[in-house]
Design a protein around this nucleic acid. Structure first.
Lengths: 133, 133
DNA sequence: ACGCTATTAGTAATTATTCCTGTCAGGAGG
DNA sequence: CCTCCTGACAGGAATAATTACTAATAGCGT
């Protein structure tokens, strides 16, 4: 795999932010450094980096996929209002020992846990909306 | 909310199956009863039923949303190969008591837990593929 | 039964993502 | 340092899922 300027900047920008941007958001950030980069290039590189495990894809509610530049073991906190994803700082002790007892024909490979919530911005929006009604 | 034939059949067909179909799959089923139903109608009704809580939307990996006709408390088993969703029969004792201790500005509303796995069909595909390589 | 209005069918538009094509550039070998 | 090969690029077209629009229709309260 060649380390092109584009690939380098995409990864760098993804790692620079604590949020988990969508492809378009990555595109916007990268364009400030490489103005004529193609959206297709961003998509392709995010895909390549995912497949080699350097970054990871987050499937949340909402239409867009989001990307995580540091795919170590950590939990995600998802805003059900805007789809924003935040890493969870504190350790969460979840007991999934009996996962393998599931009665199914599926081959169990793991468990995906996401904490749902409402972010400060969306929370304010709701209050304002309630006030005007 | 009016109880139209279309809305009735959509809900009925969604509840009739144990799988969690995509909008298109629901459309195909419903079309066997109301042949000239519009795909837009299916989408709109699934949306309406979700918003009033009669059914629920499942966000899995993959491009399409899936729908659950009986949104009682149960876990989902998701095939990472094809995106198929199956209900988990057995009870899974997951301890999430310390959920509220999360240090964040988000207002925590719940936790979403999905079991990941590979379904029998995708498992066979993999074996076959490995054999031909 | 009547009329109001939510809902529908059909179609166009939008959005996110992928694919295609001709061109370019990184780096191995000379 | 120069050249060639190949993976990667930009730009744009194509695809797929979903949503929006509009005129016609059909639930349902009266």
């Amino acid at each position: 795999m060649r380390l092109t300027k584009q690939r380098q900047v995409i990864l760098e920008q993804l790692r620079m932010t604590k949020s988990h941007p969508t492809a378009i958001e990555v595109y916007d950030r990268v364009r400030e450094i490489i103005p004529n980069i193609s959206l297709g290039t961003v998509y392709r590189n995010l895909d390549v980096l995912c497949r080699q495990g350097t970054i990871s894809r987050i499937d949340t509610c909402g239409d867009q996929k989001r990307f995580d530049g540091t795919p170590e073991d950590h939990l995600h906190l998802i805003c059900s209002g805007c789809g924003r994803v935040q890493d969870v700082e504190s350790e969460l002790d979840i007991n999934v020992d009996n996962l393998m007892n599931i009665d199914s024909e599926f081959t169990i490979t793991g468990v995906r846990i996401e904490i749902m919530g409402v972010c400060p911005a969306c929370s304010t929006d709701r209050k304002n909306q309630a006030g005007t009604n």
